[in-house]
Simulated assay, not measured.
Amino acid sequence: MATVVVPPRMQPTRLGRGDRNVFTMSDDTPAMKQILETHAPDGRDSGFDVKPLFQIVEDIIHHSTSTVPWITHVTREHLGGLEDRATQNGFNEMLQLLAHPISTVSCEISCKCSGGSDGHSTTKSICVTLSGYSWDAKVVIALAAFAVIYGEFWLVAQLYLSSPLAKSVAYLKQLPETLERVDLLKPKLESLIKLIGAMLDVTTCILRFKELPLQYITSNTPAMATANAHIPAAVYWTMRSIVACASQIMNVISMGPEYVFFMDVLSCCRYSYFLVIFSIILKNTLY
C-alpha cells in the first residue's frame, strides 16, 4: 500500500507566541512592532472612499459559492449591481488608482502562498507593499486581492461543466477530481467560508469607525482610544487570515485532490475565533 507523505507545511499548526498573545498585542510586542514600522500613510487614499470596493469584495464572496448547495453562504442583505456603484462619485477613479496595488498584492499572495512562505512574513510583506495607505484602505485592498484569487477559483469550478474553456483550465488546476470529493471537501470549505465571513465582519467594523463624525468625537475618548489601539492588530489578523485562506486554495490547486485530506481546518477555526473577538471589541466600542 502506498504511503501518503504529508508535506511540511501541511502539518498541524501550533499556536505561536504571537498567536497566543493576539489580544494583548501592544506596540511593544515584536510582531506588532514590525507591522507598525511598515505603516507610513502618505494620504494617497484620502481622496476616496474604499467602501464601494469592499462591497465588490462582498459580492464576489457571495456569488463565488452561491451555486454550491452544501456551503453555508456569506450573504449580504442588499446586493446592488456594479452598474449602480459605477454611478457613485469617484468610483471609477478609485478603481483605477487601486487596480495596480490590488494586482500587486494578489500576485504577492499567490506566489508566497504557493511557495510555502510563513503567514507572518507574507502578511508583513503585504503591509510593506501597502505602507502608504491607511489601516482601513490596507485591509480592503488586501481583501480585494484575495477576492481575485478566490473568485477565479470558484468561477472555473462553477463553469467547467458547461464551458470548454473553463473545463480546460479546470483540468490544469486539477479541480474536477478535487470537487468530486464532496464528503471530504464540505466541512473543510465550510470552515474556510466561516473564516472569510469573520474577515468581512471585522472589516465592516473598521470601515464604520472611519465613518464616525470625528468633529464630534475626539481621539482621546475611551471608546476611540480602545478602537485605535485594536484596529492595527485587527487589520494584521485579518490579513493573516487572508493569507491562511489563500494558502488553502493555492494548495488545493497545486496538490490536487490529495491536499483535501490535509486542509488545515484548525487554523481556520483559530483565526475565526481571533476575528470574532476583535469584532466583539470593536462593536462594543461602536455601540
Rank of each mutant, 00 (worst) to 15 (best):
197 G>T: 03
220 N>D: 11
200 L>E: 06
152 E>Y: 10
166 A>C: 09
123 T>L: 03
130 L>M: 00
51 K>Q: 13
141 I>Q: 05
84 D>N: 11
112 K>G: 09
231 I>Q: 01
126 I>N: 02
2 A>H: 15
260 V>N: 10
30 P>E: 04
176 P>Y: 12
263 M>V: 15
137 A>E: 06
81 G>E: 03
208 R>Y: 08
32 M>W: 00
264 D>L: 15
224 M>Y: 03
192 L>A: 12
248 Q>R: 08
260 V>F: 09
68 V>R: 12
229 A>P: 00
106 S>F: 10
198 A>I: 09
175 L>V: 11
44 R>Q: 14
212 L>M: 12
155 L>C: 04
286 L>W: 03
269 C>I: 15
24 T>F: 05
149 I>C: 03
121 S>Y: 10
181 R>F: 03
154 W>S: 12
22 V>A: 06
95 L>A: 06
126 I>R: 01
77 E>N: 14
104 T>S: 02
51 K>A: 15
187 P>G: 04
63 H>S: 14
270 R>L: 14
39 H>P: 01
185 L>P: 02
265 V>R: 15
181 R>H: 04
111 C>Q: 04
216 Y>C: 14
62 H>S: 14
41 P>C: 05
188 K>I: 07
237 W>N: 07
70 W>K: 10
110 S>C: 06
181 R>G: 04
172 L>D: 02
220 N>W: 01
27 D>P: 01
110 S>F: 02
93 E>V: 13
182 V>F: 08
185 L>R: 08
229 A>Q: 00
74 V>M: 05
94 M>N: 08
57 V>Y: 13
158 Q>T: 12
199 M>P: 02
266 L>P: 03
164 P>Q: 05
183 D>L: 05
100 H>E: 05
143 L>S: 05
43 G>L: 09
93 E>H: 11
272 S>P: 07
180 E>G: 01
87 T>C: 03
137 A>K: 10
16 G>Y: 06
143 L>N: 01
147 A>I: 00
61 I>Y: 13
85 R>C: 06
